[in-house]
Design a protein around this nucleic acid. Structure first.
Lengths: 334, 334
DNA sequence: ACCGATTATCGAAGCGCTTCGACAGAGGCG
DNA sequence: CGCCTCTGTCGAAGCGCTTCGATAATCGGT
């Protein structure tokens, strides 16, 4: 181990050309004859050359690295995060970029540090809140950024998200079509609403609007994530609303507890009560019965976010807001 | 936005010193008078100087970035991964390093690329398998690395992990003390064993050894992660082993399904059957009843991994293998 | 008052790459 | 045939930092 790394000048010598020629072969920024190109690429292969990232970043003022800022607090849908992170990394690699992982608890300072030191060329932020302290910083950072989620003041920012309002509405409409007249939404833990997290609130709003439009009655409640409190909530709900025949669950961690609680209170799904979840497909499929669900397209959100960022890095204009349309998959629970 | 970044020479001019003096103030590698130091630090603050990462990496041959290689396949304990990633990032920041996220599906090439281009100074790999194709590469990479998990040929590598064998044994011993005589282990999905994933196998081995030592009888079974198959497995187990009174569950995704299945078949926990889980505390606490569990100390594993890597980066010797001792927390399920 | 050892600072030489301007040679055109 | 335009290649100037060796300035010891 540990021979010194191959440099571009060794490649140039080996191929019998100038250093700059090697650089142009590799970047494609100037025309190079087919013959020279081949010789250079051969030398690159033979010597096992990998351009030094630091030198490249210094000279070109591009690090080819983007930052991914993950939230790491309670109440987050962890598996969704993970899916999301994966798709960001995969898509970034497709554009020949790497991903630097930052946690939200470093806050604005972390972002400023990564940007100001030219460690990264751009930023993708997850789980942006309605009133997010990082938003002002992003607005006057030289580096472009893309947010997952919409802060309340999103002017001048590029935001992507699932259209949660539509997702909430979709669930209501589906249940209405199935003939249900009284339904309930079980959402995120109350702390998530209090924090002003956009996706939770927007789902609730979409739910409310669709309820009004379809003429259904019902309530929207926060939902904790431990079995006992889920059970209590379900019991309370069933007692107070005897006509209730449908449930929308927007809480990945609680959804299995909800099913358990219904089983325990003797209700059959879907015969006594129908359940629609807003959650990843794998969770919906592993439940019993498999749940009709609205998929959270984490992968596509990640892909879109990276694409938009790459566009901005190229200096192209991009739309301010991108809302991904939810898709409802009917399974056995409705 | 977008004024050019402040450079070290602007700081030097502002403070009335040489560029190298600024560098030495910032790195502390040579003695600097208190007065000069103060002037320089003031200028740094006033101008908002952040050293350019690329230039620094180029000149010092250190990027101050480490790679975190995450597995992204089925059957992984996703939330644990996340916890782990967080602790790696947090701990790395404490040593003034950043974390580059690589996914396992780029395979050895991804590692080689990141290492050869000097993008990273070292690597932390998660979820290493018994026969991992990346192990040979790691052995002759110039960059130091730390593995989470033990490959079968771990000679010359630095590995960290929870002592899963001990964790399995601990569960058995706990149930034995409580007077149980016949118990079962429900483990990972069978595909995970087939793949040769170390932690699943080692738990099973520790379980088997402790069974022999304590004189208990029972079986170890793989466990799928959908409710219906969990239910079937539980029913089969209860039917075929009427004397069974204890269960060890080493499958984070299935543990709530197990409890649901027991409820459904009319068994009370812990009166009819005791349950010990190997899983994160939050899952154990949210179940009903809250589960006696062996914690997977993801956070500590991450911290240790980073520490060991930093030691290696400093050129210090570190132990080949580090096994973290599991801790059993008694809750209501046993 | 002089010498050697410290201590604090400076200047300059890279680190490995990209990019700009220059230029030789090959064609196309009048 | 001379002139001009392309093409393909080269050399050199940085990019912003670290680090090495050199140089003043200071100091105690004689």
């Amino acid at each position: 181990m540990s021979e010194r790394a191959v440099t571009i000048s060794e490649v140039a010598r080996h191929a019998g050309v100038a250093v700059s020629t090697v650089s142009y072969v590799l970047s494609g920024k100037r025309a190079i004859s087919a013959d020279t190109r081949r010789r250079v690429l051969d030398s690159v292969r033979v010597l096992g050359y990998h351009p030094n990232a630091g030198a490249r970043a210094l000279a070109s003022r591009r690090s080819n690295v983007i930052a991914l800022v993950l939230p790491l607090r309670v109440g987050m849908h962890v598996p969704v995060l993970m899916q999301f992170a994966t798709s960001v990394v995969t898509e970034a690699r497709r554009y020949d970029h790497d991903v630097l992982l930052l946690t939200a608890d470093e806050g604005s300072d972390g972002l400023r540090r990564a940007a100001a030191s030219a460690l990264v060329d751009g930023l993708v932020l997850m789980d942006v809140e309605l009133h997010d302290s990082r938003v002002p910083l992003l607005k006057d950072l030289a580096e472009p950024s893309v947010l997952i989620g919409f802060p309340s003041d999103s002017a001048g920012l590029t935001c992507v998200d699932l259209d949660f309002a539509r997702a909430g509405a979709l669930c209501v409409e589906h249940l209405a079509e199935r003939g249900h007249r009284e339904i309930a939404l079980l959402g995120a833990p109350s702390v998530v609403y209090d924090r002003g997290t956009g996706f939770a609130r927007r789902t609730r709003e979409g739910f409310a609007v669709a309820m009004a439009e379809t003429g259904l009655t019902g309530v929207a409640l926060p939902c904790e994530e431990d079995f006992d409190r889920v059970c209590a909530a379900i019991t309370g709900l069933l007692d107070s609303r005897p006509g209730l025949s449908g449930l929308v669950v927007h809480n990945e961690a609680a959804v299995n507890h909800v099913l358990g609680a219904l089983r325990q209170s003797g209700r059959r799904v879907p015969d006594d009560i129908a359940v629609v979840a807003i959650c990843p497909d794998d969770i919906a499929e592993r439940s019993s019965p498999p749940l009709t669900s609205v998929l959270i397209p984490a992968e596509e959100v990640g892909r879109q976010a990276v694409r938009l960022l790459m566009e901005k890095l190229e200096g192209r204009a991009v739309p301010d807001g991108t809302l991904l349309q939810p898709r409802l998959t009917v399974r056995a629970s409705t």
